[in-house]
Design a protein around this nucleic acid. Structure first.
Length: 260
DNA sequence: ATGGCTGTCCCTGACAGA
């Protein structure tokens, strides 16, 4: 089963690029971020006609997450637990049943800039709530994954120009420590586990300053697997080539292949 | 060397993104 995460940066602007990628890559499940659409405006028929079940957690103009799945989605939950006043649509989870069941969580972690400031405080508070949910997933001792746009550059090797990011919310020590606290609970970060030292693995290139042409990228989209899910991983990758296609998102898909 | 973009909205500039 191939499961991918992809920050599409707006479903209206990305309908063509997204369906082109789906038709080529053929993921069984796609966790989408930044749909920038309310649920009613999401063009679900584009995906239903390709055999996907569609669940969304949308918001007007900003944020918004969705799950596309060729297998039925069960027990869908929307919103990251831990703060009933949080109105930003950044979290959706559901169970997919293959040969065995896996809990899939799609997330769009807050950017946090400018830092320091209230947006950075919100990011770190959100990561506290994420850690709590992550601990619960591990305690279940079942296959589960948390995948999405983490807006975290984990290590200097994950940026073409790490020195340019030292003051940025994506790379500040508190951000990276919060991410590490989560992974240290016992998750496997798919791409880095398969390529421990490799530089040049990126999932985002800014639209500005010819970042793609200069390969000035960062790796901020991640797939975290519980031990029971990590045991099932047979492959993973980054579909970087679509960044150079017509009208691309600034992110590219990251995916894992699981034996289930 | 510098500056460079894109998407959204009761739209045409402000805000957000990273």
């Amino acid at each position: 089963m191939k499961i991918a995460t992809f920050n599409i940066n707006g479903i209206k602007a990305r309908a063509q690029a997204l369906t082109d990628w789906l038709d080529t890559a053929q993921p069984d499940v796609a966790l989408l971020q930044e749909i920038k659409s309310v649920d009613e405006a999401f063009p679900r028929e584009l995906f239903e006609e390709r055999g996907y079940n569609v669940e969304t957690h949308g918001q007007k103009s900003f944020n918004g997450v969705a799950i596309l799945s060729k297998l039925p989605l069960e027990d869908v939950r929307r919103g990251l637990p831990g703060d009933d006043t949080d109105e930003q649509a950044r979290w959706i989870e559901a169970t997919v049943v293959g040969r065995q069941a896996i809990r899939l969580c799609g997330l769009y972690l807050p950017n946090g800039n400018p830092a320091p400031g209230p947006k950075y405080d919100y990011k770190l508070a959100w990561m506290d709530r994420l850690r709590a949910r992550a601990a619960d997933l591990l305690a279940s001792e079942e296959p589960a994954m948390m995948a999405g746009d983490y807006n975290i550059i984990p290590q200097p090797v994950d940026a073409a120009k790490p020195e340019a990011w030292v003051e940025d919310a994506l790379f500040r020590p508190e951000s990276r420590a919060a991410f590490q606290r989560i992974t240290n609970l016992g998750f496997t970060e798919a791409i880095r586990s398969r390529h421990p030292q490799q530089a040049g693995l990126y999932s985002f290139w800014d639209y500005q300053a010819g970042a793609w042409q200069r390969n000035n990228g960062i790796r901020i989209d991640h797939i975290l697997l519980t031990p029971q899910a990590a045991d099932l991983m047979t492959d993973c990758g980054i579909d970087k080539e679509i960044r150079g296609f017509e009208k691309p998102s600034d992110h590219v898909p990251v995916w894992v292949e699981l034996d289930l």
